[in-house]
Computed example of a mutant assay.
Amino acid sequence: MKILLTGSSGQVGYELQRTLQGLGQVISLDRSQMDLSDLDQVRTVIRKVKPQLIVNPAAYTAVDLAESETELAMRINAQAPEVMALEARQLGAAIIHYSTDYVFDGEQAGSYAEDDLPNPQSVYGRSKLAGEQAIQAAGIPHLILRTSWVYGARGKNFLLTVRRLAQQRDELRIVADQFGAPTWCRTIAEATAHALIQMQRYSGTQQDAELDHEVWQSRGGLYHLTAQGRTSWHGLTQAILAHPSVSKKPRLTAIGTQDYPLPARRPANSSLSCERFMQTFCGLPAWDEALKLCQDGM
């Protein structure tokens, strides 16, 4: 199977390059080779590569900047996935696409299931929801995987920011009234590979180039994919600072969302139920265990 992977220099894309090896011929492209803001280039690359599967972790993720760069965020997060889906339809290909907890408003008390009604409160959230809907409307075989609070050992993310600020400041003031599941990018990539292996196993065509559309029809669709359990940004910071590799331990102060105003509204509750994914494909680790493994390797 020929697999086209976008955003190979991003957090999730970097890990996917490794976990997808052996599952097909992986053609990994970074932004310089396939810029999702250039829709014509997206079309041209897909038509040249002719993949059987497109894996798309690339996205516009500057949540606050998106409030003032609405057009760019929509082009990358909504229009580019639509172009990919339409091109995939012409090729008879499938797509694996990643979305976000920000499609929900965060007002629900418990964890959100896939069938709960989205109500994004930010440009970023609306753009990601539009991307989901465009793929679904194309009627192609797909997996849409919603995740949350993604971090890793490279790039720009909350984990690396906290570790850097811990060395620079005597006090960290961190929001304690927003809750979600911090998810290691490697967890996402490994779970994706497990899901793809399951799809191939059930189709019996692991070594074949053709997709089994019946398997994708029955097992594909929308899933939540995060680490298990939940915490606040304050709780996550506590866990980060507790790791032995963090030499300086600044004072940690809990604050409310109102004490740290930002352009984009965040969901107060980002917890996603992953029961559907775990029952269909594989288990998922606890957030604190995955965080420890990530920091052990830093």
Rank of each mutant, 00 (worst) to 15 (best):
L143P: 01
M1P: 02
D35A: 12
R146C: 02
A88K: 01
P244G: 10
S122C: 05
P250K: 10
A209W: 09
V26W: 05
A113Q: 14
Q217T: 07
A109W: 14
W287K: 09
A209L: 07
G7R: 02
G220L: 03
H213S: 09
S203L: 04
L143V: 01
I27F: 05
Q25H: 13
T44S: 15
F104V: 04
L172Y: 03
Y98A: 01
D208R: 13
E190C: 03
G7H: 07
L39N: 09
A58C: 01
S271Y: 13
D177T: 00
A93C: 00
A93R: 01
C282L: 09
H243E: 14
R18I: 06
S68R: 13
L36N: 03
S203N: 06
N269Y: 08
Q52C: 10
R126L: 06
G180W: 08
A66C: 05
P261Y: 06
M84S: 06
Q200T: 02
Q295C: 08
Q21T: 11
G204P: 04
Y223G: 03
P244K: 09
G297C: 10
V103L: 12
A109C: 10
D40E: 15
T100P: 02
S127L: 04
Q206V: 05
S271K: 15
C185N: 15
L284R: 04
D101N: 15
R219Y: 09
A113G: 12
D288E: 14
A80P: 00
R47D: 12
M298A: 13
L20F: 03
R47M: 13
V45S: 03
Q258T: 11
P81T: 07
R265A: 11
Q21Y: 04
T205K: 15
L165I: 02
G152F: 06
V63M: 10
R186H: 14
